[in-house]
Design a protein around this nucleic acid. Sequence first.
DNA 1: AAAACACAGATTGTTCAACAATCTTGGTGA
DNA 2: TCACCAAGATTGTTGAACAATCTGTGTTTT
Lengths: 228, 228
Amino acid sequence: MNVKAAFPSIPHQDGSTHAHTSSWVASTLRRQIAEGRLHPGAKLSEQALSEALGVSRNTLREGFTLLDSELIINRIPNRGVFVASPDAEDIKEIYAVRRTIEPAALAWGPNLDVPAMEQVIAEAFTALAAGDIQKMADANQNFHELVIASSGSELLQELMGRVLARMRLVFHAMSDAPDFHSHYVERNAALVRKLSDGQRFEAAEELRKYLDTAEIELLGHLATLDVR
Amino acid sequence: MNVKAAFPSIPHQDGSTHAHTSSWVASTLRRQIAEGRLHPGAKLSEQALSEALGVSRNTLREGFTLLDSELIINRIPNRGVFVASPDAEDIKEIYAVRRTIEPAALAWGPNLDVPAMEQVIAEAFTALAAGDIQKMADANQNFHELVIASSGSELLQELMGRVLARMRLVFHAMSDAPDFHSHYVERNAALVRKLSDGQRFEAAEELRKYLDTAEIELLGHLATLDVR
DNA sequence: AAAACACAGATTGTTCAACAATCTTGGTGA
DNA sequence: TCACCAAGATTGTTGAACAATCTGTGTTTT
């Protein structure tokens, strides 16, 4: 399967002054990967990509350097660049991060915004009732972003953005991703109720348990697939 | 002041094939900056540096891309690259991260190693008694690294490594860095005693208070300097 | 026929030279 | 003193080049 074929040639041409062409390259590829147009494990040939994007090989490589630092791609010396395909170990790492940061943000974050969380949970419920899985998953994602935002740290939000991008990669790698989010909506709601009552530590513990079960479930599903 | 002059020409020549020259460049510059040989605000000229390091401008730029993603340098389009010089806002950001992650690692981390912590604290005390400030500061640093390691997450250790590198940059920017660490040794000791008693949450709260006062003290000192 | 080998072609890692765009500098004139 | 301006330096990006390494395909060997 040719990557170039799957690539809608996005000429880097539209007058918009290149703040940094390499960062434009990186964000373009990041989007393609996030949207699943470039699936995990796919090889990114320098010649093909530089032509498709309309940039030089040198600039493309600079973009690669960025994506590599974000763990979105995997660079193997003299072999090439591949879209990252997280394995079980990576999933454990992702959850180790989440289990540290998210409960801490709930327990101690100075920017906790309970009303906003209630709002998002309500949206998740209506989306769930309407059967709109995508919208519900989005609401769920928004909820976790709100949790992180409680920490009041831009850096952590950035880190978690990268970690969650990695999570999406996991789901893209599983062609038959079942609906992992639906049955967590009620749990998130209970969590927010605790927050409304000012029980931040209890909410944090709840979130930790939530992440524990989510990790186990995800790893379990992955194990059934890894028999390939 | 010429940067090239301050730069001990480190030829990139010693046969040892570097997996990626750009990452060698990045780590070399990282070290130079960490050791204070390149002080905050210094401009890193592409021509001068590429000559001094014995690499092409292209490769140097790839290294810059890496350091930029680590916030160690500051890249201004068409202007050049400068060693980052964190300001008060950056310090607040650093402490927001620490105040989230470090207590969480203490409270919930699966890899908590109390004996190792006791060991490090003991070292800090003997160094302090011997008047060896450097050794004491190192022990203090080790202590915080142990705290992070409790989280069991490589990614967080990496993130904190970058954050602490930034902290060192703050100290390098203050030519007259007073001894900030000495009076925290006893506090850390009290903290570890709580851990020995199994009181992880109390230790976490203690650590948060510690970080609060450290931030205030650091910001206070910075304010007295910023009158320049 | 299966496994080891060999070699031509493709790909990556890095350098060099070039050029437009932008910034900096030092001098000029008001 | 200040605004202006041209010459020179620096950055951002490209394209071609080359050595080193990998890949694939066909051939030899067992």
